[in-house]
């Protein structure tokens, strides 16, 4: 129990250090990528490319094992249907990201350095997630599965 929580903590720590070192924790750096009309900074593309390369190779090595260390199975999203929910969600997320320059990982990581506005952003993000849970529950009541 303790070992798996320490493992999860270290995994989150490595992710956060990656965000700090790549400067993706800085909204101005992210907006310099998203704002293609200003002095464009392609750094975010380098972050994505490196992360993708390591993950693509690493996943395939890890999947050689029969099961993860602390779980019985690998849990991968099974469905492959591109639907309106996926598209609408991505666009709403993209607009919010472009307004502030923070997505979930950097926002949570920056809580310890970004002061009140970041805490406000994370609180609003949590509220948005709670609204989604509410929306899901209402949908389920209206159309029982």
């Amino acid at each position: 129990m303790i070992a798996r929580h320490i493992a999860a903590f270290v995994t989150g720590l490595v992710f956060g250090l990656g965000l700090v070192i790549s400067q993706m924790v800085n909204p101005a750096k992210v907006l310099a990528f998203l704002d293609i009309l200003g002095g464009w900074d392609p750094s975010l593309a380098f972050v994505m490319a490196a992360a993708l390369a390591v993950t693509a190779v690493g996943y395939r090595i890890v999947w050689q094992r029969r099961s993860p260390v602390f779980a019985e199975t690998f849990q991968l999203p099974g469905h492959q249907t591109v639907d309106a929910r996926l598209a609408t969600g991505a666009v709403l997320f993209g607009i919010g990201w472009g307004l502030v320059g923070l997505c979930p990982g950097p926002a949570i990581t920056a809580v310890s350095i970004g002061g009140l506005p970041v805490i406000g952003f994370v609180a609003a993000m949590a509220a948005g997630m709670a609204l989604f849970e509410l929306y899901e529950r209402m949908r389920r009541v209206r159309a029982p599965a």
């Binding site: 798996r4 493992a7 999860a8 270290v10 995994t11 989150g12 490595v14 992710f15 250090l17 990656g18 965000l19 700090v20 070192i21 790549s22 400067q23 993706m24 750094s43 975010l44 380098f46 972050v47 994505m48 490319a49 490196a50 992360a51 993708l52 390369a53 390591v54 993950t55 690493g58 996943y59 090595i61 890890v62 999947w63 094992r65 099961s67 993860p68 260390v69 602390f70 779980a71 019985e72 199975t73 690998f74 849990q75």
Partner: peptide, 21 residues
């Protein structure tokens, strides 16, 4: 720094898959 940080993010993703699936 972007490549190094990105590699750490990838490492974390691989760790979470290997540890928790």
């Amino acid at each position: 720094s972007a490549t190094l940080g990105g590699a750490l993010i990838g490492l974390s993703a691989v760790m979470l898959m290997g540890l928790k699936g």
